[in-house]
Amino acid sequence: MSMLTPSGMGGKYRVTGNAYPRMRRPRRRGRILAAVVASVVVLSLFGWGALQLVDVFGGGDGDTKANAAPLDKPSCRPVPAPTRARPLGPLPQPTGVTLNVLNATSRGGLAKTTADALAGRGFKVARFGNAPDGYDQKVTQSALLVAGPAGEAAAREAGTQVAGSTVRIDPHRKDKTVDLLIGNAFATLATPAQAAAARVVAANPPPPKPVCAPVTTPAAKGGARRPGA
C-alpha cells in the first residue's frame, strides 16, 4: 500500500503515486455564462440596427427634436391698411371748421366753456350741449371727434386743440360738420403753441403700421397630425 493511501482504504479506492490529486471546478458553468453574454450583445446589436432601419425608411434624419416642428405655428403676415377714397389734403383753418361741442362727462357746464374757448380761437360752433346716450360717460380719452369722410380734415384740425384726442370717421355722414365729444380725461385745451405743433403732425400723419394676421404653417414631413387637421 502506498503511503498516500488513507488508512482503511483499499481496492478501487486505492491511491497510488507520489502526489495528491488536484480537484478542478467543472468548466461547463463558465461556458454557459459566456454564451449568455454573447447572446445579449448580439441581440442588442440587432435591435439597434432595426431602429436605424426604421428611422431611415420613416423619413427621419436621426434628430427627432429638429424634425418635430410645431404644427400650425402662428406667424405674422402684413395686411395692407385700407386707403382713403380721396386724399386728405391740407388741413383747413379754424374758420373753416364747424363744431358741435358735446359734453360726455358728468361735469356740468363743460360744453359751454369749451365751446366759448374754441369760438375765441376762430372755430364756428353750431351748437353745444350734452352728448347723446351712446356716448354719455363712455368717452374715456380727453376728446373724441366724429365726422364723415368729407369732414375728416376738419376733424383733425379740431383735434389739434385737445391733446390726446382721437378721430373717428362715420361713413354714413355726408356733411363736413364735426362733433367734438369731451371725454373723462379732458382737463383743458392745448395752448396755441401745442396746437401749432400738433397741426404739423396731423397734416403729415405717419404711415400706418402693418397689421399682423395669423398664418398657419403645414405640418412637418413625417410628423403626426392633429385630429381633424
Rank of each mutant, 00 (worst) to 15 (best):
M1K: 09
M1P: 10
M3K: 04
M3Y: 02
L4N: 09
T5L: 04
T5F: 09
G8W: 06
G8R: 13
M9I: 02
Y13E: 13
V15T: 14
T16R: 06
T16V: 12
T16D: 07
G17C: 01
A19H: 15
P26N: 04
R27Y: 08
R28A: 12
R28S: 12
R31C: 05
I32M: 07
V36G: 12
V36F: 15
V37D: 12
L43D: 11
S44P: 03
L45Y: 13
L45S: 08
L45W: 14
G47T: 08
W48F: 14
L51Q: 08
L51F: 05
Q52C: 06
Q52N: 13
L53R: 14
L53I: 15
G59S: 05
T64A: 12
K65E: 15
A66H: 15
N67T: 06
A69E: 15
A69Y: 07
P70E: 10
K73S: 12
C76P: 08
P80V: 03
P80A: 05
G89D: 06
L91H: 04
G96I: 00
T98D: 04
L99S: 10
N100F: 10
V101S: 14
A104C: 06
A104W: 10
K112W: 02
T114W: 00
A115N: 11
L118Y: 04
A119G: 08
G120Q: 13
G120L: 07
R121W: 05
K124E: 07
A126T: 03
R127W: 00
A131W: 08
G134A: 11
Y135H: 03
Q137L: 00
Q137V: 07
S142V: 00
A143E: 01
A143G: 05
A143F: 03
V146H: 02
G148I: 14
P149C: 08
A150M: 09
E152S: 05
R156M: 00
A158G: 04
G159Q: 02
T160Q: 01
Q161L: 01
A163G: 14
S165F: 00
I169L: 10
P171Q: 10
H172F: 07
R173Y: 03
D175A: 15
V178A: 12
L181I: 13
L181E: 03
G183S: 11
G183R: 11
N184P: 04
F186Y: 13
A187F: 06
L189F: 08
L189Y: 10
L189G: 10
A190S: 15
A190V: 03
A190N: 07
T191F: 08
P192Y: 10
P192V: 07
P192F: 09
R199T: 13
A203I: 04
N204L: 09
P205E: 06
P207I: 00
P208S: 06
K209H: 12
P210I: 14
V211N: 00
P214K: 11
V215A: 11
V215K: 05
P218Q: 08
P218T: 00
P218A: 07
G223V: 01
A224G: 12
R225C: 01
